[in-house]
Design a protein around this nucleic acid. Structure first.
Lengths: 193, 193
DNA sequence: TAAATTCGTTCACTTAAGTTAAGAAATTAC
DNA sequence: GTAATTTCTTAACTTAAGTGAACGAATTTA
């Protein structure tokens, strides 16, 4: 399990055994059961979540309705806004599969960076990469109607369609569950004829 | 004009006169006329753009139609994806007002960072800030229907509605120009009665 | 296992956005 | 200052998404 992490890190920087041990000694691995709510609206936290295995989901509750805006699967992570700005969270984060996460917090980050400056480099690469990816996703979302957004998802993250409940996918696509159902039926019908 | 820049920078780090001069010696200020296309689809560039005064716009051409996905006004900047990944650009960047920009490139960034490491700190703060802001924007976009998106924009960036042509705003909101027109008429009518 | 809940689909209906076209208003070019 | 172009609005029509309700299927809970 640790190997998954180190394999991932090795894409960005190389670690000595000392450094690896320093990370392991932080005791950051956590098994989380499906359904666990990691962060609630109104709550404050310093924790960041990184998924080694499984899937977590970010959602708002607006007028009593859940609005899912992101899924994080293997090798993806989230730093909640409230961990940076220390304002209470506007959204929820919950676990939609039994998962293995790395839960780190800001203090630990600073600590590790002080000891091993190269971590800083990795963080920076990661956040640049993330920013770029997100920009592309946002552009794609804006420039596509719902049906196209669904087809894009089918191409880019086919796994999500399997592991995530339909109604959560719907709001991720910016539509109602019924519309997603209908849209899928439409695509299927047009594909046949 | 330089003061605008240094005022901005001072929010993140403090500069000595030496450092200021080093920046000025790079000759990065550029006046750009409205209508100028800074970056074209298919083109490669190392340049980053930061707006001191004016407004620039990022857009795709999809099926012969312009799709505007972002505007950058005073104290906002853009690092095109192609400047990082060295793949050709998928979008255009053009100037929609006579503007004063800072045009820097990756080499210069490295150069400056080598001489003045604190710049690195600022870049990191900026990109974190940007990432957070963008995440919020994206969530808001996903969770709101077009009319709400328009009202949000009215609140958050009222200046844009003044300085940007309607049809560009429309695609920024993810809809057709005619729909924006209609939507505005609808809001106005409902406000009255 | 039975009951309860959640989930996905379908339907009928409403509302809003896409599309095509036309014309007025504003801007730009000459 | 006029012509040409671009931009914005309106309208009629089409298509798709929102809404409320119903129902079976799947899943969860007791």
């Amino acid at each position: 399990m640790q190997d998954i992490l180190f394999d991932f890190i090795s894409k960005y920087i190389s670690l000595t055994d000392d450094e690896k041990n320093a990370i392991l000694s932080l005791d950051i691995f956590r098994s989380v059961m499906r359904g666990t709510i990691l962060l609630q609206e109104g709550q404050k936290t310093q924790d960041n979540y990184f998924v080694l295995k499984g899937c977590i989901r970010k959602y708002y509750i607006i007028n009593g309705e859940e609005k899912t805006t992101a899924f994080f699967t293997e090798m993806e992570g989230i730093t909640p806004q409230c961990a940076i700005s220390t304002t209470p969270s506007e959204y929820y984060i919950s676990c939609i599969e039994d998962s293995i996460l790395i839960v780190s917090n800001t203090e630990m980050g600073i600590e590790v960076n002080r000891k091993f400056p190269k971590f800083d480099l990795m963080c920076r690469m990661l956040s640049e990469e993330l920013l770029a990816k997100q920009q592309i996703d946002f552009d794609e979302f804006k420039t596509s109607p719902p049906e196209q957004r669904y087809l894009n998802l089918l191409q880019k993250r086919p796994d999500l369609l399997q592991r995530v409940p339909q109604h959560q996918l719907a709001s991720y696509l910016g539509i109602q569950p019924q519309s997603l159902s209908r849209l899928r039926a439409r695509i299927f019908k047009n594909n046949k004829s």
